[in-house]
Simulated scan of single mutants.
Amino acid sequence: MSLALRCLTAAALALGSWLPDSATAAPPAASPSTVASASALGRGVNFGNMLDAPREGAWGLSLSDEFIAKAWAAGFRSVRLPVRWSNHAAATAPYAIEPAFMARVSSAVDALLAQGFTVVLNMHHYRQLDGDALDEGDLAVPEAEVDARFLQLWAQIAPRFAHHGPRLLLELYNEPHGRLNGEPWNRLAEQALAIVRRSHPTRPVIIGPTHWNNASDLPLLKLPPDRNLIVTVHNYAPFNFTHQGAAWIQPPLPLGLHCCDQAQRAELDAPLAAAQAWAAARGLPVYLGEFGAIGLADEASRVAFTRAMRDAAEARGMSWAYWEMAADFGVYDPKAKAFRARLLDALMGPR
């Protein structure tokens, strides 16, 4: 048993949590409180392209009180808050996070909690961790230090939020892929969770599979023995519809594809069915952390896709967070300062 797992086991046993004797045993089912926390996420929205940009504002959006108030008034009850911590920390050990940025994130979390939201705070877009090319303005560090730096970032983030109430959940990393696929992510997630558990012994922590949190990689995901875990998946199927014309996909996918015929509905439903079966066998709740269709698709198709995905998730008892509030996939138009009414109704209207 690794040192990280021994630390985790000791912390959990001290709090009376049941853990198996062997690290090779199946992980225990989620505790009732963690299941309740997953359910409390309900219908949510991602505040994307804000704190996950290389610098806040670099992608055209800043997190504002307006967005917080509007999202609440629209009926969303959780916010997933993507944060690019990696570009706001020193390149050398101990990789200190900029105090001003830590304060900025903390103030955003506090404002969301004060409004009444349940908040998912994550680490997002650490490009080197996945082996991706850096974005303009990203900070590079020596490749040999990337994993250690990831862990040291969590060693700073976790204590900062240790005294927040139960409506704050932590997500270890968004969409691990590339160099993390499969076993490398299992090892790194186990170490990160052990670090988080030093200051959050029972707070729900969200962990997803590799290949961009794709349900297809759930069979590769090995979770540590911990009763306070929620599994997350992202679902953008059918991808050629949801990402048509996206500038970050090369070569760009052709425009003009509509949704949703019978085959497309089956395609979008299949990952949720797979996630439900995998999680049910382990007694874990599932959180659909991202889904959405780009604004370059026609409105009627976006509405049909969004409603179909929402219905498929809710039929399986999954809480969800739409991607995202006000950028390329946005449910809210920041120029008009109004929600896109038909899209919002697809998310929040009566079943």
Rank of each mutant, 00 (worst) to 15 (best):
165 G>F: 05
198 R>Y: 00
200 H>G: 09
52 D>W: 03
83 V>P: 00
210 T>I: 09
263 A>I: 01
33 S>R: 14
53 A>D: 09
207 I>N: 01
276 Q>K: 15
67 F>L: 13
177 H>P: 04
348 M>H: 05
296 L>M: 13
115 Q>E: 14
272 L>D: 06
105 V>E: 00
7 C>L: 14
208 G>D: 10
345 D>M: 12
312 A>K: 01
295 G>C: 03
96 A>T: 15
86 S>C: 15
30 A>D: 08
145 E>C: 01
111 A>F: 01
263 A>M: 02
170 L>S: 04
16 G>S: 06
323 W>A: 12
63 L>W: 13
291 F>I: 05
104 R>A: 09
114 A>V: 03
239 F>C: 03
271 P>W: 07
227 R>V: 02
264 Q>F: 01
73 A>H: 10
97 I>M: 07
327 A>D: 15
311 D>G: 01
154 W>L: 05
285 P>V: 00
260 C>S: 00
212 W>K: 10
181 N>F: 12
271 P>T: 08
191 Q>N: 08
158 A>R: 05
104 R>M: 02
334 P>R: 07
49 N>P: 00
19 L>D: 03
135 D>P: 00
191 Q>L: 01
182 G>P: 00
250 Q>P: 00
50 M>G: 02
59 W>P: 08
81 L>C: 07
274 A>K: 14
271 P>A: 11
304 A>F: 08
91 A>D: 13
315 A>N: 01
138 D>N: 06
285 P>G: 04
49 N>R: 12
102 M>C: 01
342 R>M: 04
339 F>T: 04
91 A>F: 03
299 E>W: 04
37 S>L: 02
203 R>W: 09
48 G>N: 08
280 A>C: 04
156 Q>Y: 04
135 D>W: 09
126 Y>H: 13
36 A>I: 06
7 C>Y: 07
91 A>M: 02
121 L>A: 09
80 R>K: 08
210 T>Q: 10
55 R>W: 02
130 D>T: 14
194 A>G: 09
315 A>W: 03
14 A>S: 13
218 L>Q: 06
137 G>A: 07
214 N>I: 00
151 L>R: 13
125 H>D: 12
136 E>T: 14
349 G>V: 09
136 E>N: 12
71 A>V: 05
163 H>N: 15
188 L>F: 05
106 S>E: 15
302 R>F: 06
260 C>D: 01
82 P>G: 12
74 A>T: 08
324 E>R: 04
164 H>V: 07
94 P>T: 10
63 L>H: 12
301 S>N: 12
131 G>N: 03
201 P>R: 14
146 V>Q: 02
187 R>K: 13
234 H>V: 01
243 H>F: 15
